[in-house]
Computed example of a mutant assay.
Amino acid sequence: MRHDTRYEHLDSLDNYELEHESQDIRGRPLVSPTGEKYGIITDLLVGRDKNRVEAVRLEDGRCCAVGPLEIHDDAVVYGEASMAHAKEGGAAVSEEVIPVVEERVAIGKRTADHGKSIGVRSRVVSDTVSEDVALRDETVSVDTREVDRRVSGREADKLLDGKTVTMTEHDEELVVAKDAVVTDEVVLKKTGKDRVEHVEETVRHTEVDVDKNANDSRGRDRR
Rank of each mutant, 00 (worst) to 15 (best):
D4Y: 03
D4E: 06
R6W: 02
Y7L: 01
E8D: 09
E8S: 11
D14G: 07
E17I: 11
E17G: 02
L18T: 13
E21R: 11
S22T: 11
I25W: 01
I25N: 01
R26A: 06
R28L: 10
V31T: 03
S32D: 03
G35N: 06
E36Q: 08
E36H: 12
Y38F: 15
Y38Q: 08
G39P: 00
D43L: 04
L44S: 06
L45H: 02
L45E: 03
G47D: 12
D49C: 07
K50G: 01
N51H: 08
N51L: 14
R52Y: 08
R52D: 11
V53P: 08
E54I: 09
V56H: 01
V56C: 05
R57Q: 10
D60W: 03
G61D: 01
A65R: 03
L69C: 05
L69M: 09
E70N: 01
E70S: 06
H72V: 06
H72P: 02
H72E: 07
A75S: 02
V77Y: 00
V77M: 03
E80T: 04
S82I: 00
S82R: 00
M83C: 04
A84P: 01
A92F: 02
S94W: 07
V100E: 02
V101L: 05
V101Y: 03
E102L: 00
E102Q: 07
E103Q: 11
R104G: 07
R104M: 12
R104Y: 10
G108Y: 05
G108M: 04
A112R: 07
S117K: 10
S117P: 05
I118L: 14
I118A: 14
R123P: 01
V124T: 08
V124Q: 04
V125G: 04
D127C: 09
S130I: 10
S130P: 04
D132L: 15
V133D: 09
L135G: 14
D137V: 12
T139I: 14
V140W: 10
V140R: 13
S141Y: 13
T144F: 14
R150I: 02
V151H: 13
S152D: 11
S152Q: 05
A156N: 10
A156Q: 11
D161F: 00
G162C: 06
T164I: 02
T166G: 07
T168P: 13
T168Q: 08
T168E: 14
D171Q: 08
E173G: 11
E173R: 11
A177E: 09
A177Y: 01
V182Q: 05
E185L: 06
E185V: 09
V186G: 05
V187T: 13
L188Q: 09
L188V: 10
K189C: 13
K189T: 15
K189W: 14
K190T: 15
T191K: 09
T191W: 10
E197A: 04
V199H: 11
E201V: 14
R204Q: 15
T206P: 00
E207H: 00
V210I: 15
D211E: 13
N213A: 13
N213H: 09
D216I: 08
D216S: 13
S217N: 14
R220L: 01
D221E: 10
R222P: 00
R222C: 04
